[in-house]
């Protein structure tokens, strides 16, 4: 008898959770629909200048049209390619640099002031230099997508390496482990959660680097479309590019989140 009443309480609790989830979802949908409807409405009724702020229907028409005639794909692909590569290179180099700092205390001390300066430096300001050095093409843009996340990754991962409980190393050292064995058995796997959490930050940062890079290089990509649309006063194009960026960036973020879950489940076991 007692058990069944416990169970009733439990199912009531479960039901409450479900209702709450539903309410949140409904509100989320309402906000989305409300925002776009209001935008469409105000544009049609000339509450806002449709030339400047466009309207959802125009944007969607433009996107469909551009996809149909294929002029959107190239821009989309190039931007995604640059962002993904910038993200991967930035993250990997950042981790490699962190490993180097960890490996040599002296190197870390020598690098300290430079890391502080490079971290404080707004990386996108280096854009013109990249373009001069690497040419006005996708290499410069990838470099910008990467540089923006390298130093912050290095600092975060390096501090994670150092915060590992020294007793894990002591266990390994007591078996006669080398420094490299300590790194690969204890320090690296123990800092994996931190490294994975930097992935999520870096994917966002790479977008910033790439879009600014495309602004500057102005050849192709979604960043280029934004600048181009701005120059020819085609704000429908600007908004359409923004919409696509928002969607792809969100998808990438979700993918990285899935990767994070997967990595945590399958910790690199060595």
């Amino acid at each position: 008898m007692k058990n069944s009443s416990d169970y009733q309480l439990f199912s009531a609790y479960q039901k409450q959770l479900k209702t709450e989830k539903k309410i949140v979802l409904i509100w989320q949908c309402l906000l989305l629909i409300g925002f776009f409807s209001l935008w469409e409405l105000s544009s049609r009724l000339y509450w806002i200048d449709p030339l400047l702020f466009s309207s959802p229907s125009r944007i969607i028409n433009l996107v469909l049209e551009r996809f149909a005639n294929g002029t959107m794909w190239t821009h989309l692909q190039i931007t995604m390619f640059e962002t993904i590569l910038g993200f991967i290179i930035g993250t990997l180099l950042g981790i490699v640099l962190a490993i180097m700092l960890w490996a040599s205390e002296r190197f870390s001390n020598i690098m300290d002031p430079y890391l502080v300066i490079m971290n404080a430096m707004p990386k996108v300001a280096l854009g013109p230099i990249f373009i001069v050095a690497l040419g006005p093409g996708y290499i410069s843009i990838i470099a910008m997508g990467a540089i923006i996340s390298i130093i912050i990754t290095t600092l975060v991962v390096y501090s994670a390496f150092r915060e590992i409980d020294p007793n894990y190393r002591k266990v390994l050292l007591s078996f006669g482990a080398t420094k490299w064995q300590c790194f690969h058995k204890a320090v690296f796997p123990a800092s994996l959660p931190v490294m994975i959490s930097t992935l999520k930050v870096n994917v966002g940062l790479s977008w910033v680097g790439v879009i600014v890079g495309e602004f500057l290089v102005s050849k192709q990509g979604l960043g280029y479309l934004i600048v181009y649309g701005f120059q020819v006063f085609d704000f429908t194009l600007v908004m359409a590019s923004l919409l696509l960026i928002a969607i792809i960036a969100a998808v990438m973020y979700k993918l990285v989140e899935q990767l994070e879950k997967w990595l945590i489940r399958h910790r690199i076991d060595s």
Binding site: N167, K170, V171, G176, D269
Partner: peptide, 29 residues
């Protein structure tokens, strides 16, 4: 090192390894 075995205040078993893999850490190293 080869002659001594060290046991710490807490177990310091590596949380990402199974008990068996933890135990085989010494032989592995």
């Amino acid at each position: 090192n080869q002659l001594t075995g060290y046991m710490l205040q807490q177990d310091y078993l590596f949380p990402w390894k199974t008990v068996l893999d933890n135990i085989l850490l010494g032989p592995q190293i």
